[in-house]
Structure formats: structure tokens, C-alpha cells
Nucleic acid binder design. Structure first.
Lengths: 149, 149
DNA sequence: TCTTGACTTGGACTCTGTCTATCGTAGGAT
DNA sequence: ATCCTACGATAGACAGAGTCCAAGTCAAGA
């Protein structure tokens, strides 16, 4: 992600302060922010940035393959900048915290031909669920209090 | 699913015409309807049924473990009555058609302890994606034209 | 049949996300 | 350094999915 801005410029992306801020907000490991969270963080540095711009920019980053869209609950999509290393997600059933995980093996091989119904299967998403260490403790975190880091 | 109504009554469910119709609409294999689709089909038999009741009833069926909530796209949740046989989902990337599939092996065992971050992992959801036979053909189905059966 | 609390209803409301018309500006041309 | 203009940003209206609430209805036990 560090040289993301350079890659984008190389692809002919017009560099604006808004796009720069959005790209910078989406930096780090285990980052899974919603569009609104991205907007809030971007607005701390660029108060006049609009929601539409955040949505547009996130959509472009997804199209360019620099960011992955994740929807682990039925609610807002989350944006994962860890797009260059294949991974799956581990989600706390209580507080919603998400971690990137790397299972062994290839889940594609687990789907027999007779279970493919003639589909040309090309992709697999795996979501593991369970209680995170904090929520497994006697005083669990309140639901919905996703730390969003 | 056939004796669902009996099971529900046995659990103390108050049986109303609305609940009966919703439960009956959700019957069959490879059924993955959205709440709105359930409402539309229920309304064919019970025109005055309200959206709120459909949402309430679906929520109760999910809580009781009789129906599974599936969100394969970022849009409306779908409701899968095939709750008593563990399975995963195969989704057409073009038209959205969903099939229930049964992979071999247990995906849980593919997540090493050092990749669990202290979580008590208890559940795995796998979504396979690819083109269905119709969409792989020269004249593909239009996107979004999910047949909803 | 009566009673009552659970269920249903319609509509307002929230949350996510998209669209559009208008304004602003990055960056190449001069 | 300045000018141009097409691309990008903005505010706000709009749409889809889902939740909430007060008031009315009715299933089923007494």
C-alpha cells in the first residue's frame, strides 16, 4: 500500500487532495473501514470532503484492484486495502471485529465437479466466525462496537 | 421443511395466517428469496400482508434456526430454508443465481491455530463464485435477473 | 363466549448507497 | 507563469433495504 499513490499516478489517475486523503486513510494491516468511517477519517484532514467523493474514490480503488470490498454482515460494506495478498476473514460474532487470515490449502479443490452444476467456478470467499478474545471474557465488548482499525 | 409448521407450533408459536403463508413460501430446494420477494409471493395469497410482518417472521425463523440468512451480494439479504443440512453457496457472478453446494472436508481445519488470533472459531461460511452455464454462453442472462427460485 | 397478550399493520424513520447538475481545479499546452 | 478544459468534487435529492412504533386485530386458553 505504501507506493499506492505512485501506482495510481502511473495509471493516469488525476491526483487530487481528496483522493490522496482517502488512499492514505486506507493504509495498514487489518483495516476494514466502512465508507462512512473512511469519510469521517478523511474529513479530519480535509473537512469539506463529500460523501459522494469518498464513494466514488472507493469504487475506483476497487475497480483498479487496489482495495477489496468485504461484506461480512448484511450492513455497510467494508474496504480492505490488503488486496495484493490473498486472504480470508475472521469475524467476531459479537463485536464485529475483523482480522485477515490465511488458511492452508485451496478451498476450490473442496468442491467436487458434481457439486458445481456446470458453473465455471473461479473464486472462493471464506468467512470464519467466532468470539474474539475480548468478547469471550466475562465482560464482553458491546455488540456493534467494532474497533474499526 | 415439510413439518416446519408442526415444529413451530410445538415451540409455542402462535399460528397466524401470515406466518403460515411466509413459512409456506419458503419451501423447496435452492430457494433463496429476498424479503421483498417473500413478501410479493406471500401477498399473492394474502394480499393485505405487510412488509413489517414478513420481516418479523423471517427474523423469527432465523432465530429459531429454521431459516438461514445469506448475503452473497452487498444488497438485500436472502433467506434459505435449507437450514437442517450444512451447506455452502455457489453464486453466478453475472446473474446472481444461487445454488446450495456441499464441499468435501471441513474448512475449519484449514485455519491454523496461529491464524486464529485467540478467537474461538465456531463457524465457516464459504461462497464460491463463477459463471453459471447460461451466463457462460454467448448470450448471457442480464445481470441482476436472478431467477429467485 | 370472553379475555388478553401476542401479532399485524401502515407509515414514519434510519442507514447505505447512487445519481445529477453545477462548480472547481490538476495538469498539459502555450 | 498563465490559460484551458476535461476530469473530478460537491450538495442535495433520491432510492433500496430494513427497523420502529402506536394503534388495531385476533389466536387460543379459561
Amino acid at each position: 500500500m505504501s507506493d499506492l499513490l505512485a501506482r495510481l499516478r502511473g495509471r493516469g489517475w488525476r491526483m487530487t487532495s481528496q483522493r490522496r486523503v482517502v488512499a492514505e486513510v486506507l493504509d495498514g494491516d487489518h483495516v476494514h473501514l466502512t465508507a462512512d468511517e473512511v469519510h469521517a477519517r478523511a474529513a479530519r484532514r480535509l473537512p469539506e470532503i463529500s460523501r459522494a467523493t469518498v464513494y466514488n474514490t472507493l469504487g475506483e480503488l476497487v475497480t483498479l484492484g487496489e482495495v477489496i470490498e468485504v461484506s461480512t454482515d448484511g450492513r455497510a460494506k467494508r474496504y480492505d486495502p490488503n488486496a495484493h495478498r490473498p486472504h480470508q476473514h475472521l469475524v467476531c460474532s459479537n463485536c464485529g471485529t475483523i482480522r485477515d487470515v490465511h488458511p492452508t490449502g485451496d478451498p476450490l479443490t473442496d468442491l467436487p465437479v458434481e457439486e458445481r452444476f456446470g458453473f465455471a467456478v473461479s473464486q472462493v470467499e471464506v468467512t470464519y466466525r467466532g468470539l474474539c478474545p475480548s468478547c469471550a471474557r466475562p465482560t464482553p465488548a458491546v455488540p456493534g462496537a467494532h474497533s474499526a482499525t
